[in-house]
Design a protein around this nucleic acid. Structure first.
Lengths: 229, 229
DNA sequence: TATTTTTGTGACAGTTTTGTAAAGCTTATG
DNA sequence: CATAAGCTTTACAAAACTGTCACAAAAATA
């Protein structure tokens, strides 16, 4: 639903500040205090982009960056490096290792947010859009509305987030666990089968407005959203 | 293009707050820390209106006011005086010396902004829109009036600002917290549920004049104003 | 075909969120 | 100083939503 950012930063004050600002700006945020944690969180739920501090305990930013690039899920995830001023060499090295942009500390929050928006627009087109359309289904995130053809569709909060998630990644198959992570939230404990129930509800709502069922069940794997446009 | 406001206020915290809020609202802002500076800045570029603190170093607000009135460029520039509560005499004197309105501290930012808009509409016609219309609902900020169809609607101040805000951003969903920020004021502490009560009153008032409820409840998210035109 | 595994779905009990009337206060007004 | 108007909070009822379960249906497997 919201763009999901992973912030890897060991300095507490900065991490909190960033978390606050990005949340306020409308992002889902996770904070990692060291390199290990960053990799862990990134594996749990693939972020839409990553803020990576250059200097961190356990694994340095550059090492994290390199490892992320080795996995298929995060190979193309945009990464912004946070470096101390003056380390010009860091920039070179960082970009070498696959960072997409870098920002020197200290930076102003609006500046960073602007950089992030620019990066997202460049690399993840559509992720900042308010309206997503797939076939005859249209979802407006800011207005919390769903339409199929001309008909308004009412969805409960969970079904809305679920559809939102699916429509951002059309065709991709998500396991129940993945859906729980990214739609319900990492820390919530619910039965995997609960996903089925909500899928059912979503299907019913979408069917009421006519047209084929856009959700495909992938037996023993999960669900995917597909619709011919 | 943007209205240009000169803010003369020596108290740092308040000056910064005002600067931030007026900029966010789309004004060009200059800050003067004392009376001398205020006159200087006003001479440099004639403001569209002036916020003038009553108590200031060097030249008091009232003296600044009087001198501004002597120059042809600023003779008719709207001036809002900021005074401490209780100084009833200030009001009289201030208006005598040519202030157009006065606001007692402490005030909430949205309240001040509303006063400013009203003043600008009264004195600088055309610089802002007077009326906003959505569907059959019409709000006249200058006159503090609301009409639905032909019927006059009476609203309390809070409901008025609430409707004003909604009609400026039709279709968009605002959380209770956002509404508290932009309608009540960043600094005011009020229960989130209070918003519900005012929404209820606004709905009732609008319903009395017939037609559908233009306010949509978005469960677990907030409210939005929508009406078919 | 019989058996096992996986998915679809109606029912339901519990929880969360919203609508609203009533009460207590504060501020404006004459 | 009394009255009126408007604001916030509270409490309770209604409505919407949630997660789980049980069982039916479908698909895979033997």
């Amino acid at each position: 639903m919201k763009p999901y950012v992973l912030i890897a930063e060991d300095e507490d004050a900065l991490a909190t500040l960033l978390e606050y600002n990005f949340q306020k700006e409308g992002y889902d945020v996770s904070i990692a205090r060291d390199g290990d944690e960053a990799l862990l969180l990134a594996a749990e739920r693939t972020p839409d982009f990553i803020l990576l501090d250059w200097m961190m305990p356990k694994l340095s930013g550059i090492e994290v960056c390199r490892r992320l690039r080795r996995k298929s899920e995060t190979r193309s995830t945009p990464i912004i490096m946070l470096t101390a001023r003056g380390d010009e060499t860091d920039k070179i090295t960082g970009l070498d290792y696959g960072a997409d942009d870098y920002v020197t500390k200290p930076f102003s929050t609006p500046e960073l947010l602007a950089r992030v928006r620019a990066l997202l627009r460049r690399t993840q087109p559509g992720i900042l859009d308010d309206v997503i359309r797939q076939g005859d289904i249209e979802i407006d995130i800011k207005a919390f509305r769903v339409k199929r053809g001309d008909k308004e569709i009412h969805l409960g909060p969970t079904e809305f987030r679920l559809l939102d998630h699916f429509m951002r990644y059309p065709g991709r198959v998500f396991s129940r666990e993945q859906l729980l992570d990214s739609v319900w939230g990492r820390d919530v404990y619910v039965e995997a089968r609960t996903v089925d129930v909500h899928i059912g509800r979503l299907r019913k709502a979408l069917k009421n407005s006519g047209g084929p069922d856009p959700i495909r069940t992938v037996r023993s794997a999960g669900y995917a959203f597909e619709i011919s446009s």
